[in-house]
Amino acid sequence: MRSACLALTLGLAACGQQPDIAPTQSAAAEAKPMATGSPEPTMPEKSFQVLGTEPFWAVEVLPGQLRYSDPENIAGTTFAATESSEGTGVRYSGTMSGQQISLMVQPGTCSDGMSDTVYPWTAVLTKDGRRLQGCARKR
Rank of each mutant, 00 (worst) to 15 (best):
E83N: 01
T82P: 00
S111E: 07
G129H: 11
E86Y: 07
Q133E: 11
S38H: 14
A28I: 07
R67G: 03
P19T: 08
S69M: 11
R130W: 11
T53P: 00
F79E: 04
D112C: 04
E72H: 09
C15T: 14
S3V: 13
G129D: 14
E40A: 15
P23W: 07
A35I: 07
G89Q: 08
N73V: 08
A7T: 09
R2A: 12
L103T: 02
T42F: 07
P120F: 11
S69F: 04
V124N: 10
E40Q: 14
T126R: 11
T88W: 01
E83Y: 00
N73H: 12
G108L: 05
A28N: 06
A7Y: 09
L12V: 00
L6P: 00
R2T: 14
T126L: 02
D116K: 11
G76M: 03
T42A: 15
T109F: 12
Y92W: 13
Y119R: 07
A13P: 01
V105Q: 08
P55K: 08
G16A: 05
G113F: 09
G134Y: 08
T9K: 10
M43W: 09
A80F: 03
D70W: 10
D112L: 03
L66A: 03
F48R: 01
A31H: 04
E40G: 10
G113H: 03
A14Q: 13
T109N: 12
S47Y: 00
A29H: 10
T24L: 13
T117F: 01
A29V: 07
L132F: 05
K32W: 12
S47L: 05
G52N: 02
M96G: 01
D112Q: 02
P44T: 06
S38K: 15
G11H: 14
G94D: 07
R2Y: 08
G113C: 10
G64R: 05
Q65I: 00
S102W: 01
Y68E: 04
A35N: 13
Q25Y: 04
E83H: 04
V61Y: 04
V90Y: 01
Q106N: 15
V90K: 14
V61W: 00
Q25R: 12
A4G: 02
A14W: 08
D112R: 04
L12G: 01
